[in-house]
Simulated assay, not measured.
Amino acid sequence: MLYAVAHVRGGGELGREWYEQGRLLTKRNTFTDFVAAADHLIAEGYATPERLVAEGGSAGGLLMGAVANLAPDRFAGILASVPFVDPLTSILDPSLPLTVIEWDEWGNPLADPEVYAYMKSYSPYENVAEHPYPRILAMTSLNDTRVLYVEPAKWVARLREVGAPVLLKTEMSAGHGGVSGRYSAWRERAFELAWILDVLGYDS
């Protein structure tokens, strides 16, 4: 097993300009960066599409949803934790606790039609299509106040409409950071890793 971390634009690893190229009306760069990282691993012989699983959470869960639509053939599985997969609906609601402060990162679709159209063009929920998807595990929490559980729930429902092999796991007493307590957190992570191993064909 190999574990690779993709530093996509939107992070600060390569400086301020790199960060600026991954937000607002250049948000799509974060998705294509991730696909490019997968392509590099495949080209260099570290992985094959049949033996590659992607993982991300929260805004990284949006990345997972976008990649599932953009390049489903690159991955055997996609693990999306508390995924922000219906961003347009949430960012249009200023009554939610994070919406207004997040306009600096995503733009304000209430005030700018260009932002609205751009967000709609990459929103995972809005762009589910009738094509083969990799196996998908969506993890959410009933008491998550940052990414409401309804986002992954409706995304999963939409994926199931097009026949995607998707599993939804909802923690009933957890928040955005997952379950509380060391052993509970280990148990949750063990579930995720067991799913990854199953996707990759490790059955013993």
Rank of each mutant, 00 (worst) to 15 (best):
V128S: 01
N127P: 03
E171K: 13
R51Y: 05
L137D: 00
I91W: 04
M139R: 10
G61T: 06
D144T: 09
S173N: 15
G12L: 11
R23A: 04
I101G: 08
R160K: 15
E126G: 01
D112W: 09
L148I: 11
G15D: 13
Y183N: 13
E171C: 11
V179S: 14
S141R: 01
A47M: 04
D203H: 14
F31A: 02
A76M: 09
F75W: 03
I42S: 08
E105Q: 11
N29A: 11
S95Y: 09
P134H: 05
T48M: 09
N143Y: 15
G11C: 05
S58Y: 01
V199Q: 13
L167R: 15
Y202C: 08
N108D: 15
A174F: 03
E161H: 14
M1Q: 13
S90I: 05
H176A: 11
E126L: 06
V162H: 10
V115C: 11
A54Q: 06
W195G: 01
V67N: 02
F31L: 11
A190M: 12
W103S: 01
L96E: 04
L52F: 06
G60T: 10
G60F: 04
L25K: 13
E50C: 06
L70N: 07
R74Y: 06
G22W: 00
D203G: 02
E188T: 10
R28P: 01
V85G: 00
E171Y: 14
P94K: 13
A4D: 02
A38L: 06
R51K: 15
A66E: 11
Y202R: 04
V53S: 07
G107S: 10
V115D: 02
P94S: 08
G45Q: 03
E151A: 00
V67Q: 01
L167D: 07
V67W: 02
N69S: 07
I136R: 07
E161R: 15
G77W: 08
P87T: 07
T26H: 15
P132W: 03
F84P: 02
A164H: 10
R74C: 08
P152I: 09
H131A: 09
V82F: 08
S141Y: 01
D112A: 10
V85D: 00
A76N: 05
P94W: 12
G65M: 12
E192G: 07
D104T: 05
E17Y: 04
P113K: 13
W106H: 05
I91Q: 01
G45N: 06
V5G: 03
G11T: 09
G12D: 08
R135G: 01
E50M: 05
G107H: 02
L25V: 12
Y118Q: 09
M119C: 04
L148C: 03
V82C: 10
R158G: 07
M119Y: 04
M172K: 10
R189Q: 13
A54G: 15
S81Q: 15
S123P: 01
R51P: 02
A59M: 07
A185L: 12
T26C: 11
S123I: 05
S204W: 11
V67K: 00
L98T: 12
G178C: 12
A59D: 01
A157N: 13
W103G: 03
